[in-house]
């Protein structure tokens, strides 16, 4: 790619949405009760993500640290709050990636695995019918 084009792309990528736009939208939305209709679709991905995070936590959590963690949580400083918010954002990103991976898997299964299986079943059915014919 030419250097001038790369420069243009780099400049355009620096453009970000002003935070006030998001703040204003959050101020205008009205909390509504959750509808469970769409959640069943991403529950497997979320469960897998939670299991992974939980497994890592259990694995890296030495006994006796619980009390220390509790005291540290009570003494949370602004930096801790910042870390917590960054962790929240990271978990959100992981969730999104898992959801996208799940969608990809679904597409692959439906496009590659299902047609041969369907053909196989059809062939078997035809063979059985021919075999049963007098």
């Amino acid at each position: 790619m030419p250097a001038d084009l790369s420069r243009i792309i780099r400049e355009l990528k620096q453009e970000t949405c002003p935070p006030r736009v998001r703040d204003e939208v959050r101020g205008r939305i009205h909390p509504q009760p959750n509808s469970p209709g769409r959640w069943w679709r991403i529950i497997p991905a979320m469960a897998a993500g939670l299991a992974l995070v939980g497994g890592i936590l259990v694995w890296q959590w030495p006994a006796g640290d619980e009390a220390r963690l509790k005291t540290e949580m009570t003494r949370a400083t602004p930096s801790h709050v910042q870390i917590a918010s960054q962790t929240e954002a990271a978990l959100g990103l992981i969730g999104g990636l898992l959801a996208e991976a799940s969608a990809h898997s679904e597409q692959v299964i439906s496009s590659r695995a299902v047609p041969p299986l369907r053909n196989g079943l059809r062939i078997a059915k035809n063979k059985i019918i021919e075999h049963l014919k007098p």
Binding site: R22, R26, I29, A89, G92, L93
Partner: peptide, 16 residues
């Protein structure tokens, strides 16, 4: 609550 959290994450991710 879940919907708001989801919305917040989506805003952060896609608003740019």
């Amino acid at each position: 609550m879940v919907r708001e959290l989801e919305f917040k994450i989506l805003c952060e991710r896609h608003s740019d």
